[in-house]
């Protein structure tokens, strides 16, 4: 039906797509442009080209510290979220158990409540039990945000291959846990990595929950937010976020690629 219709060179849909892409990219590109502009205010006309904002980044210890904090929080919270999400995924895909519906509901509800509620609730529980706020608290908050995603990503992968492979492993003398380690997890590896990277990028950019839970040490978004109040720090912030943007694009493109590879191997093995 579509093939029979002669397609114009630039269709209406294509034009619309182009406009939408421009709408999405222009604001970011403008900011990147200003990150090379030799002026503390983000206004036209442009001044000289400069890389000094990028150079100044290296001499901003607080900023680098918050960057380091965010990397740690992202790394550890994503590891925990991936591990717990994977265990949950195996349980819900491979077994039937009592209260399965309840478990599914509780583990996916973080998807359907505004994250400010989670931040506030964790703040209260830490206050209630006298646990001081810290990066650890932020990391715990991020695991709750990310477990549903990790679980669903891994569950999709598990549902994509039959458990005959696992049964074969057990017939060949592996214990159930041996089979999990030697058969199930290797086959699910691309999904595990995708779950980890998806969790990491979420955590790295997360502000709404972290805002309530940071103690004395800030994560990068919390630090950036505090800097937005000082206009003179703006070019520095823009330069840093441009760098972060390029990095996160690389990370997420990697995730996409893995996910697609996992889907295509799934199709091949199906």
């Amino acid at each position: 039906m579509q093939a029979s219709r002669a397609r114009p060179l630039v269709s209406f849909g294509g034009l619309y797509f182009g406009l939408a892409a421009a709408f999405l990219y222009l604001p970011i590109l403008l900011l990147i442009l200003f990150s090379f502009n030799d002026s503390r205010t983000l206004v036209f006309p442009l001044r000289e080209f400069t890389t000094r904002w990028y150079a100044e980044l290296l001499h901003s210890p607080e900023l680098l510290r918050s960057l380091g904090n965010s990397l740690w929080v992202g790394l550890l919270s994503s590891l925990v979220a991936t591990l717990l999400g994977t265990m949950a995924a195996i349980a819900i895909v491979r077994f039937r158990f009592r209260l399965q519906g309840l478990f599914m509901a509780v583990s996916t509800i973080p998807l359907v409540i505004p994250s400010v509620v989670l931040g506030v609730a964790l703040l209260l529980v830490f206050a209630q039990f006298g646990v001081p706020l810290s990066l650890l608290a932020v990391g715990i908050g991020h695991t709750i945000l990310n477990i549903p995603y990790a679980m669903l990503i891994v569950a999709a992968r598990l549902a994509g291959f039959s458990n005959h492979l696992e049964e074969a492993g057990m017939d060949l003398g592996l214990t159930y846990w041996g089979t999990l380690l030697r058969v199930t997890l290797p086959i699910s590896a691309p999904a595990l990595l995708a779950a980890f990277l998806s969790s990491f990028t979420t955590s790295f950019d997360e502000f709404a929950v972290a805002f309530f839970l940071v103690g004395t040490e800030a994560t990068l978004p919390v630090y950036l937010y505090s800097q937005l109040r000082f206009p003179s720090r703006l070019p520095l912030v823009v330069a840093l976020t441009a760098l972060v943007m390029v990095t996160s694009i690389l990370i997420v493109l990697g995730t996409e690629w893995l996910q697609r590879r996992s889907l295509s191997t799934r199709r091949r093995s199906a």
Partner: peptide, 11 residues
Amino acid sequence: SWTSFLLRILA
């Protein structure tokens, strides 16, 4: 949308 949420608001 993979770029910083705060950056996009700032933009």
